[in-house]
Design a protein around this nucleic acid. Structure first.
Lengths: 225, 225
DNA sequence: GCAAAAGTGTTACTTCTACACCCATGA
DNA sequence: TCATGGGTGTAGAAGTAACACTTTTGC
């Protein structure tokens, strides 16, 4: 170790994951009921400590993998949380990430093992530490980012109906959308394509299934100051 | 210290500041030429180590204060940088913040003391470690945020002309704006008000000076997916 | 009197919003 | 045959984009 760093403090560094899922017209979070101290019995985000052998982004992926067994999940940094007393046990600096996943990809058996549950975002229990603050920041970020980049698809199955897609964007944005205007807009997006298949589960008539193809998309950024 | 944390690693945690200024129609960054190891002689962002007694946001403010003597500067988290080898001296996790300040508020004497310089953002030297990556991310963020929130004023003096304001937004967005359309839009914003004063330095005729009043503003967020 | 920046409106075009009915099917 | 969700078009309003000349004044 070099001279320069000698007198500096070192800190525990953690990652916490805000894991979004979508079903039945509502956003959900995957939360854990802790069966260990500190805050045993409390609801929390999935988290873990940074290790020497990994970058912080890798740590976030690892932590998510430990919980879900999945390694190709869309993740994004939310921010760094570093209040002195945010974790009453010890001084811990935490990097928060949000993850977007399709609930159907999650093995319920793993949920049982980890004491995890999908909970509607509008019916969250009290969370430990500053986890509610992390969730709030993640929701705002998700809303902003979903408005300018096509990331919503990470919350849906590979094939989805337009009704599902509309409900998803209504859930993210918090506003109702007009069905005809919504579908008109979707038609103009060449990265959403209709398949020949229909989903008959939601109605007698059946709805066409659509798919996201990752054709590049211009991001529009309008200046309102 | 509690049992739970015992076997966890601890890390150095730093903050690095991307300090934006604006003059002569161009964005600038305040950079330091390091006269200490590691990377002595290299150009770098202003940084410092997190201390036990402060939150990470406070650390960012402190570090900025050390360099500028100013404590009311607009700052925003850019992200956390945690690659294993990002600092070749030691493993350091760094939280990057951008800061927006009026160049005129900066005492040139402090620049001399710290070996600091304002450098045009399009003429940056090679930066140490991953600082260029931090700058790139900060610029993208600034552009996005300036498009939806009135934060640009932090880069201008209290009184400014419309030409200055337009040049600022052109510098941030990277696009030329139409003068008449720009001024029309400004007229509709009730948080920008004209004063009776004129600035005669930029032209013989003189230009009216405007001021930002912090009246609340609706943030528009249009969904393009 | 001229150079240099400040200031000012109109029109065509694009995009957005609001709105209501028929369709296909399984039970 | 009927209940349920799927699917479709138009017209008025709002916003955006393109465009050129006059004003002021110090030198």
């Amino acid at each position: 170790m070099e001279e320069f760093y000698k007198d500096k403090e070192r800190f525990y560094v953690a990652v916490d994951c805000i894991i979004f899922g979508f079903c039945q017209g509502e956003l959900h979070l995957l939360l854990l009921k802790r069966n260990f101290e500190p805050a045993k019995g409390g609801w929390s985000l999935m988290g873990g400590f940074l290790e020497k052998t990994e970058s912080i982004n890798q740590a976030a992926q690892r932590v998510l993998f430990e919980l879900t067994g999945l390694d190709d999940i869309y993740m994004k940094q939310v921010g760094i949380f570093g209040e002195i007393d945010r974790d009453p046990g010890e001084r811990v600096i935490s990097a928060a990430y949000y993850a977007l996943m399709n609930i159907d990809d999650y093995d319920p058996e793993l949920a049982r093992i980890h004491n995890a549950q999908w909970i509607k975002i509008n019916e969250l229990p009290v969370l430990i530490f500053d986890h509610q603050e992390m969730v709030d920041k993640a929701r705002i970020l998700l809303k902003k980012q979903a408005a300018t980049e096509p990331i919503g698809f990470n919350l849906l199955p590979k094939l989805f109906t337009l009704t599902q897609l509309q409900m998803l964007y209504e859930a993210i944005s918090g506003d109702a959308l007009d069905k005809r205007n919504f579908r008109k807009k979707v038609k103009e997006m060449d990265f959403i394509e209709r398949t020949a298949e229909k989903d008959k589960s939601g109605s007698r008539r059946g709805a066409f299934l659509y798919r996201f193809n990752d054709r590049k998309q211009k991001t529009v950024l309008k200046f309102n100051f």
